[in-house]
């Protein structure tokens, strides 16, 4: 039985003997690298350029044509954004908002998800459907009334306005519910018989098993809150309450000719996400793909 697709007679009719398929002795590596390597470089170059320009002097950037490689490393941009601008404050604000959002999504998402997965109560089905429906609502539809609600609560221009809407998302509740449903019931029932409360069962039996799902919720919550610009732009006016994203774009608008400082600020803005990504790459990619494949 033949596996090759070319017929033997055709091969035989060619004047020069061809090398057998699948053996290309000329290249020491797969030919696909010739395609992949330049493409990968194209993806990497903007980030490399971000890093390089943050340690270039303004003089080097501002001449024409601008330098593509720093002649010497200059930390002027960094000292400017750390000393003269409010970047440290914005970094702190971003950390506070993201940390609270991640923690509260884990806590409230687990509680809500567990109740929907394992407990019987009146109205649970209606609430679940309602929650699923709100996942499909685009943010643009709710942002104007949310602004008005936050204004009524007196939270506009405070970090509270950024925290409250991201305390718990229907996504976190639903994802954890799905995961809890996939766990075997027997473990929990044994604990029940021993007289454990629901909260105790959730905390000491279910959650340790749910680490992958909790990691997914944490990663996606962190990414969306850290990277968000739209809502801070609407809810915050005063620059002491800016997040990094809002601060960065405002700073760029005000310092159009200090590109090295703008890029230094940009590095500070992306560095936390990049470091988290490089350390937990598997969790990041699994989070993104699992949420994608289930959708």
């Amino acid at each position: 039985m033949t596996v090759t697709t070319t017929s033997p007679s055709k091969v035989g009719s060619r004047p020069v003997a061809e090398p057998a398929p699948r053996r290309r002795p000329r290249l020491p590596f797969s030919a696909w690298h010739l395609l992949l390597a330049p493409l990968a470089a194209l993806f990497a170059v903007p980030l490399l350029w971000l890093l390089l320009s943050s340690v270039m002097s303004n003089a080097e950037i501002n001449r024409f044509p601008p330098a593509l490689w720093p002649s010497k490393i200059d930390f002027g941009g960094y000292s400017y954004v750390l000393g003269n601008a409010m970047f440290p404050r914005w970094l702190l604000n971003s950390v506070i908002v993201s940390a609270v959002a991640v923690t509260s999504n884990l806590v409230f998402g687990s509680l809500g998800g567990y109740a929907f997965a394992r407990m019987r109560f009146a109205g649970s089905r209606v609430l679940l459907v309602l929650m699923l429906a709100t996942m499909a609502v685009p943010f643009q539809l709710t942002m104007i009334p949310t602004f008005l609600v936050m204004k009524k609560l007196g939270l506009i221009d405070t970090l509270g306005a950024l925290i409250v809407p991201s305390l718990v998302t229907p996504f976190a509740v639903f994802l954890l519910r799905q995961f809890f449903l996939s766990l075997p019931r027997e473990l929990e029932e044994a604990a029940w018989i021993d007289g454990c409360s629901r909260l105790r069962v959730l905390y000491s039996i279910v959650l340790p098993l749910a680490r992958p799902a909790l990691a997914t919720v944490a990663v996606l919550t962190f990414l969306t809150t850290w990277n968000d610009l739209t809502w801070p732009l609407i809810a915050i006016n005063h620059d002491t309450q800016y997040t990094l994203q809002l601060g960065l774009t405002t700073f760029q608008g005000q310092h159009h000719t200090r590109w090295s400082a703008v890029m230094a600020g940009n590095v500070l803005t992306v560095l936390p996400v990049l470091v988290a990504f490089l350390f937990a790459q598997k969790a990041f990619i699994r989070s993104v793909t699992s949420s994608g494949l289930k959708g």
């Binding site: 409230f108 567990y114 309602l130 609502v137 709710t142 609600v149 809407p165």
Partner: peptide, 20 residues
């Protein structure tokens, strides 16, 4: 207990999604 568990989620989602 169930309502205690879900009330934070329900509050935020009703107040900042359904109502809006």
């Amino acid at each position: 207990t169930a309502w205690a568990f879900i009330s934070p989620a329900v509050l935020v989602i009703l107040g900042l999604s359904v109502l809006p």
